[in-house]
Design a protein around this nucleic acid. Structure first.
Lengths: 163, 163
DNA sequence: ATATATCCTAGTGAATAAGTCGGAATAATA
DNA sequence: TATTATTCCGACTTATTCACTAGGATATAT
């Protein structure tokens, strides 16, 4: 979405191009973009055939990060009993009832943060623009033990980039 | 921790008791409590042998939920490149640099929410205390598709409790 | 016609959360 | 002193998920 935002207003952008620039597998991008296209309302529109590709369905100023995250990853939910949207009558389990209040606050804090920032905000952000010659692909990132979950990231020492 | 807080000031509480009341496996509790005991500073203290058990190391007013979560699940990190603590010089990857700012905001929002609530606050919370006769064990919770991750919880329809 | 695209469904591998298992050490008490 | 209740310890297991791969079918500009 950042890539599409950077190219907003131009010709449709092919996943092949995005794949090369962002160093992400084409077949994987296809799966992600499917969610973005089928969302209601859609976040991207497609043009098939040669010289086809994808464009944002709206201006980056009209797309919040919360919308993108929800489309790609589902409703915000730090815990199953604190899932966004449905006030699921679930797990009124002794103590868990206590913690449910906390998870709801966490959920709302996350949602507000995501909803308060648009794609355009993200693009405009020029806080710390470091040496762009040094970079690594997401694929190259490896962590020793547990590191992928939301709260799990102990010993987050990651390989330095060799250049 | 909620169970220990409820019994704060009394005798040591055994994991067997907690296991029965909270419907959580004893062997699993043993693993969790190990982290709480070995934390620096410790969150619980133990007494071995018959009539032994665990007590909170401090008053519930002196223990934040942030501290508990970090001990049990590691540093708060919505993304590997936004891990709490170490400003890991990692993944200054083209676009990811943009999103990193967002993830840092999410991380801080979560951290602030967790750090602003103590165990005592949680205990005092009496917002919606429903019929405690209807409950299900955490073990009994099953979701159809994806539902355990932080953002992942689409179609969160969970089995209702049969009574 | 061909190359370049999107579109679709299914399968894979590593990592993780949650839990199991078997046993050793420690302390109260009958 | 034997027994029982407990903490303590390390290894293993299982279902699920994330990020990806594989193999096609369909559409369109040149």
């Amino acid at each position: 979405m950042v890539d599409l935002a950077r190219n907003y207003g131009g010709r449709p952008r092919s996943l092949t191009d995005i794949s090369q620039v962002e160093l992400l597998p084409l077949a994987y991008l296809e799966q992600l973009v499917k969610l973005l296209r089928e969302a209601e309302p859609p976040l991207v529109v497609s043009t098939r055939g040669a010289h086809g590709g994808y464009k944002l369905s709206r201006s980056p100023t009209q797309i919040t990060m919360g919308e993108i995250v929800r489309v790609l990853e589902g409703p915000i939910a730090p815990m199953i009993c604190a899932t966004e949207g449905e006030m699921s009558q679930v797990c009124n389990f002794l103590d868990s009832c206590k913690t449910k209040v906390l998870w709801a606050k966490v959920r709302d804090a996350v949602a507000q943060t995501l909803d308060n920032m648009t794609l355009a905000d993200l693009m405009a952000d020029t806080s710390e623009q470091q040496d762009p010659s040094r970079f690594i692909a997401l694929t190259d990132i490896h962590v020793n033990s547990t590191a992928k979950g939301f709260f799990i990231a102990d010993e987050p020492e990651v390989r330095a980039v060799s250049n």
